[in-house]
Amino acid sequence: MLAVLVAVALASGGRISGHPRARGTGDTSRGYHLPDPAEGDRTAANLLGAAPTDAPSAPAPPVPTESSTEVEPLPASEPLQASTIAATPAIGALLRGGDGEDPEHFCTATVVQSPNRNLVVTAAHCVYGDAFTTDIAFAPGYHDGVMPYGVWVPSRIDVDPRWVTDGDPAYDVAFLQVRRPGSDERIETVTGAERLAFGSSPSRPARLVGYPDDEDEPIGCQNTTAAYSDTQLRFDCAGFPAGTSGGPMITDIDPANDRGTVIGVIGGYEQGGDDLTSYSSYFGPDIAALYDRAGTAEVSPTT
């Protein structure tokens, strides 16, 4: 049922299909990569050119800017089974689509607040197997083949070096700086962004969201997270298949704008789990340090 990620030193099944390929520069020993801008431009053009011709042409839905002092109650889903939910602007699908290939989405990612305002979070195994995967793009708010907020390609990818060397499930988190080819827009100004929390209680009511690779709409489920170990969170809910890797665990959701706080992403133990339980690397000091590095590194959005 779960697709196998082909990766050095990783034998467990993940919730993606591996597609390692890297062009560009960087320092693998330090856990970062700067993708080739020309490759990103080609990937974006290919994906935009392959968009369905019968897709709705209406402008993207406006992104809510209001906020409230309330948080949405997140009672456990009944039954504990993922089901289709409406797409939201800051959560979307990671897609691949090289020359002559039909576009396909294979993981999930989320725009998060950062000093450089260009950052998304996903699982490390979505972007690093035995090399960095760079012929990819992010489509926030993706649904039914429509990319309402455009196509964004990575300009920098950051993972913990211990993921590179050991595939340690404690570090199955990646941050991607992204850019929209031909534009100097920052993604936060287009989609809004979720907050991040580090060192939070492992037991929190949360909503888990992901894009199955055989569906064109996101799925979601609500339950209370729990500690699986010192480095792992668990979320019990059935029905998160391949494609949902990198999907966010979100708590403290503001009902006025549907944005909240990301406390984990599908990955970690068993690269995300099985049909009944999803996992995430715990967002502790090491993930906070990775975020600080990625969120303050300045890469030109037009690079």
Rank of each mutant, 00 (worst) to 15 (best):
P241S: 10
Q113K: 10
R234W: 09
G247H: 06
T88A: 07
P61R: 13
G272L: 09
H143T: 06
L10M: 08
F175V: 04
T53C: 07
E72P: 03
T88E: 08
E185H: 10
C237F: 05
G268Y: 07
D214Q: 14
A139D: 01
W163E: 03
Y149F: 09
R234H: 05
V159G: 00
A82N: 01
M249I: 08
L95N: 03
A7N: 10
D274P: 00
W163T: 01
F106W: 04
E104K: 09
Y291V: 00
L47D: 05
I91V: 13
A9M: 05
G167M: 10
A226V: 06
S68L: 11
S200F: 11
A45V: 03
N118T: 12
L290A: 03
T43W: 13
A288L: 07
Y149W: 12
T189L: 13
W152D: 08
V146R: 15
V112S: 02
S203G: 04
D160Y: 10
L34R: 12
A137V: 05
L208V: 03
Y32G: 01
R117T: 02
T65Q: 12
S29P: 01
I91R: 08
G31F: 11
Y279K: 07
A58K: 07
A109S: 04
D158N: 11
A58D: 15
W163N: 04
G239K: 06
G272Y: 01
G14H: 05
G220S: 02
A44D: 03
E104S: 13
F198E: 03
A9Q: 13
P79H: 14
E270G: 03
Y149T: 00
P115D: 11
A87R: 08
A170M: 08
A131F: 11
G129N: 15
I266Y: 01
P202A: 15
L94Y: 05
D130W: 15
T28G: 07
A238V: 03
C107E: 02
A93L: 05
E270Y: 11
N118F: 05
P255L: 14
V120C: 01
A288H: 12
V111W: 00
Y32I: 08
G247C: 05
A11R: 11
P52V: 10
M147A: 11
P161Q: 12
T303Q: 04
A227M: 02
I136C: 02
P75S: 08
Q81F: 10
H19K: 08
T191N: 09
R162K: 14
G141N: 03
V190L: 13
F138Y: 14
G97P: 04
V120K: 01
D216L: 15
T84Q: 14
V4A: 13
G199M: 09
M249K: 03
A297W: 10
D252M: 06
G182Y: 08
W163S: 02
R195A: 14
P37A: 09
S280C: 11
R186F: 10
L5K: 12
P205Q: 07
M1K: 15
M1W: 07
T165G: 10
D275N: 14
Y142I: 03
F106K: 00
G150L: 10
P89E: 06
D252Y: 02
G92L: 03
I91T: 05
N223I: 02
P285D: 15
T88P: 00
G40S: 09
P59I: 11
